[in-house]
Amino acid sequence: MFDMIGSIFKNLGSKPATRMYPFEKREPFKNIRGQISGIDINQCIFCGICSRKCPSDALAVNKAEKSWEIDQYKCIICGLCIEACPKKCIIMDDQYKTAAYEKEKSKFIQQSAPQAEKPKQE
């Protein structure tokens, strides 16, 4: 019956094990899989390997339109697309995706002029 007492007194004197989460965030670990936040669209060659490898069909690559689209709510963040990408231009973010009111897709379109990426909501 008194086996727990030691732990209880130790806890009374020590700092809390939890964090005040939204105000105090832990430094994310290196190389963790947070979310696929986007693509460096100017490097993309629209080969479509990533969309064929994707287990959850979250990616859509259109060569004619020069667009790359991700449905982050379908994405299971396995990281296969990043491994498969010949140009290594897909970006893995170390922050988790937060909850949202609506599901949306992010679409990136390559245009002739560089630096023209435009997230579009659907």
């Binding site: 727990m4 732990s7 209880i8 094990a17 670990f29 290196k30 190389n31 963790i32 899989r33 963040i77 990281g79």
Partner: peptide, 23 residues
């Protein structure tokens, strides 16, 4: 309180998993 103690220990495994494997 036992439940909380054990899950606190479990959190260490979860962290090491996140650090080594990314999830």
């Amino acid at each position: 309180s036992l439940f909380m103690q054990i899950w606190r220990n479990r959190e260490k495994v979860m962290d090491i998993m996140e650090e080594t494997a990314g999830g």
